[in-house]
Design a protein around this nucleic acid. Structure first.
Lengths: 332, 332
DNA sequence: TTGTAGGCGTTATCAC
DNA sequence: GTGATAACGCCTACAA
């Protein structure tokens, strides 16, 4: 691997000059510029990003922290972020922390130690205080799906409670009263918020929340399936089931079908997130839109604006959940 | 940010000694070791991965190249790789090249310039020669889903042609003769291979391939949906449709249902990949298993073995596709 | 067991 | 406009 030094020798100039044409900073005469460029071509010179990063303490890299690599939600989020950054010639380095406190901390430190110019975090386990403190540091952070008042300008989020409220309220407005709820993991704040919204809608209709009628799944198909089985075993009256996310709704639908019941005529199903496959389930899933691609895009734009002084971002930080009416919810 | 230098001063030892306890290399007396550790704690010292990488020309990072960030296939692949590496305390840097020649090359150079210790590539656009040449370089590469004889020991792949053959052969054995094929993008080698397998099965049953009965989609739900619409418009007799992957099968199923036809009684559907959601479609999708998580895991093990001298990997490089019989295929 | 010193490939601050 | 020359933070022979 040729270095800047060899280029400088071959071009008969100094290191500094090569560096200048590399970053086309300062003024370099057209003559020397072409000389240097030729030398670089001749040696097939490729700049060493690590060395550059060490010397400049910048990396043109943005660190991303997600829960998992798989799954339609995080995939869409990463896609939204990456698209925006690629257009700006920035790279992303992604790590998945599996919603584990130690891993989240480790991964954050890893990204910082790699000189990331900024961090975009979708974290669950770490405390608000930790993030507030982290935000004081040298590396700017942006938080997706979590609202922390002290660093509100760094948060991009959706009103999960409202989404949960809308979902259950819609079901109630369709006349359902025997409603089951398959929630996400208790450890996840968004799962708890959505559940809180569910409670609010229930109470508004004079129904007391009932632990018998809720189940905590894993936000995956298996969880929805298991939850539905759990309810069937208890033999509870049911006309609708509201799920903490679309994957679980998908799993629940599968279980319902295996019990020879029709969706939505026997049991209605509502999801949350509106991930891609939800337009292709049978029946098509009624759900709450979570514009995660846009939110990822916005986070990227914020970084571009704040850190790289490119473009500007005027999107509001708080997104509103919206009902997506399809075919899995019917009136009773 | 405290540096190794400040730690050395506070601990009253030399830089080298601090470095030693950091990498717990060589022998350091228990006394000095604790002295140094205390100093590090006191200063909240965090090693700078960039500097370490520059000095050692290693990074404990493995570069991964995928087609896209979203989608169940790549998501599962990344997950399989990451899980293995995390256990070994290695990190991954992922980029998505969108099946574009220039982007693939750029991304590979990026990963190399970041001192990745190895590369795991799922690339489409780049030529065999390019990869063979790349393999000569300093950074070891491993290629998923592509067989290149000259670097066979670096390839981890599935026999796509055989998979395509099995899919269509199975359909034929169920008595179907009016078969449609929704292929992946022509530019993707695996799509072409699967199609070739489809042809082979057809011929084996004395049926001449017919361009009228094939459609090239985008490997996404939209492509399957559009393909099915296309066929409906042409009003071809059909009793089964074989798809290049599960997403397209999912889209095709959606289109079939919208035409008030039953799956599998009116039209059977077969997919390819066996991604997660395929066990939860309605009806459950009959498909060809593509063990991408295991293949990712194996690629990671190869890297661990070859590059880091940890563990050993004896899995064969060529995986065999297998039929997964579920409910979307019936006999005619 | 510990310390010294040169080097990794760039950037950036000075002078000239 | 161009060239020395310190950094950047760490590793690693080589000595001691």
């Amino acid at each position: 691997m040729a270095t800047i030094y060899e280029v400088s020798k071959l071009a008969g100039v100094s290191l500094a000059t090569v560096s200048r044409v590399l970053n086309n900073s300062a003024s370099v005469s057209e003559k020397t510029r072409t000389k240097v460029n030729q030398a670089m071509k001749q040696l097939d010179y490729k700049p060493n990003a690590i060395a550059k990063s060490l010397a400049s303490s910048r990396s043109d890299c943005i660190g991303i922290l997600v829960g998992e690599f798989h799954g339609p939600f995080y995939g869409t989020m990463m896609g939204g972020i990456e698209k925006e950054f690629r257009a700006a010639n920035k790279h992303i380095v992604v790590t998945a922390s599996h919603c584990d406190l130690e891993k989240e901390k480790e991964d954050i430190e890893f990204l910082i130690s790699r000189n990331c110019d900024a961090l975009i975090l979708h974290v669950e386990a770490v405390s608000d205080e930790y993030l507030i403190n982290l935000a004081q540091g040298k590396t700017p952070i942006y938080v997706i799906n979590r609202y922390i008042p002290q660093i509100a300008d760094r948060c991009i989020c959706l009103n999960n409670e409202l989404g949960g409220y809308i979902a259950t309220k819609t079901v109630l407005e369709h006349g359902h009263r025997d409603i089951l709820y398959i929630a996400g993991p208790k450890v996840k704040a968004d799962a708890r918020e959505r559940l809180a919204g569910h409670y609010r809608a229930l109470r508004e209709f004079g129904i007391a929340p009932d632990v018998e009628r809720e189940y905590f799944g894993d936000y995956m198909q298996t969880g929805g399936y298991a939850g539905m089985q759990h309810f069937f075993d208890k033999d509870l009256p049911v006309s609708a089931v509201v799920c903490g996310n679309d994957e679980m709704a998908n799993g629940a639908m599968s279980a319902i079908r295996e019990h020879q019941l029709d969706i939505p005529n026997d049991i209605s199903v509502v999801g949350f997130d509106d991930v891609l496959f939800s337009s292709y389930t049978h029946p098509k899933l009624t759900t709450i839109e979570y514009p995660i691609a846009q939110m990822g895009k916005m986070a990227a734009q914020l970084v571009l604006q704040d850190v790289y002084k490119q473009g500007e971002c005027t999107t509001p930080h708080m997104f509103e959940p919206k009902l997506v009416s399809r075919d899995s919810l019917s009136s009773v």
